[in-house]
C-alpha cells in the first residue's frame, strides 16, 4: 500500500474530503468536522492503528503585543524592532478567523503516515473526540482543549491539563493576553 493508494481509497469513500496544503513529504487530507470520525474509523480499518499527534494551529495572524509575558530580544533583528514589526509583512498572510486541528495517523507495518486537517471557526469550535478509537487521543485532545479552547465532544474527561486552574484563556491562541496573577 502506498500513500497515493491510501489517499485514493479515502477520497473515494469520503468524496467531500479533499487534499489539503501538504505537510511536506506526507499525504495530507482536509476533512470536515462531520466526516472526521468516519474517516478516522475507516483509516483505522485500513491499518492506521497508531494515533501519533493531535495538534492545532490558530490562523489569527501574528502574535499581539499583549501576548508577550516579557519583552522579546532578538539577536537577528534590530533592537528597536518588536516581534510585531518583524511579523508585520506577513500580517495578512493566512490571517483568518479559523483554527485548524491537525491529526497524524501512523500505519506501523506499512511505514505510512497520513495527516488530517479539519478547519473550524475560532469561536465555539467543536469536534468529535477520537478518544473512543484511540486512547492516545485522551491527553492530546485535553492539551488542545487547554491551549486552544477547542471542545472535543464525547471526550470522557475534558479538563485542563498543562496550565494551572487559575489561568485565564488559552495560551496558544494568537490573541491570548496574559492576565497578571500572583506569580508575576
Amino acid at each position: 500500500m502506498t500513500a497515493e493508494e491510501v489517499l485514493a481509497k479515502a477520497l473515494a469513500k469520503f468524496p467531500r474530503a479533499d487534499k489539503a496544503d501538504p505537510v511536506k513529504d506526507y499525504p495530507t487530507l482536509r476533512v470536515s468536522a462531520g466526516d472526521l470520525l468516519g474517516l478516522v474509523r475507516y483509516l483505522k480499518e485500513l491499518g492506521f492503528s497508531y494515533l501519533d499527534m493531535v495538534s492545532a494551529v490558530d490562523w489569527k495572524g501574528p502574535v499581539s503585543r499583549e501576548g508577550f509575558v516579557r519583552a522579546p530580544g532578538f539577536n537577528a533583528l534590530r533592537r528597536e524592532a518588536s516581534a510585531q514589526a518583524a511579523a508585520a509583512p506577513a500580517a495578512g498572510f493566512r490571517c483568518r478567523d479559523e483554527m485548524t486541528v491537525v491529526y497524524c495517523l501512523t500505519h506501523p507495518s506499512e511505514k505510512l503516515k497520513v495527516f488530517l486537517k479539519t478547519d473550524l471557526p475560532r469561536e465555539g469550535g467543536r469536534l468529535p473526540s477520537l478518544a473512543g478509537l484511540f486512547k492516545a487521543a485522551d491527553w492530546q485532545e485535553r492539551e488542545v482543549f487547554d491551549l486552544f479552547g477547542i471542545v472535543f465532544e464525547g471526550h470522557p474527561d475534558l479538563r485542563k491539563i498543562l496550565t494551572p486552574a487559575f489561568l485565564q484563556g488559552h495560551p496558544l491562541r494568537k490573541d491570548y493576553a496574559h492576565v497578571k496573577d500572583r506569580f508575576d
Binding site: 518583524a86 498572510f93 493566512r94
Partner: peptide
C-alpha cells in the same frame, strides 16, 4: 510539527 509563515520565526511549532 512546524508551520512557517515566511518570517524568521516559526508561526506555530508543536512537539509530539
Amino acid at each position: 510539527y512546524v508551520v512557517s509563515d515566511g518570517t524568521a520565526m516559526p508561526y506555530r511549532l508543536h512537539v509530539r
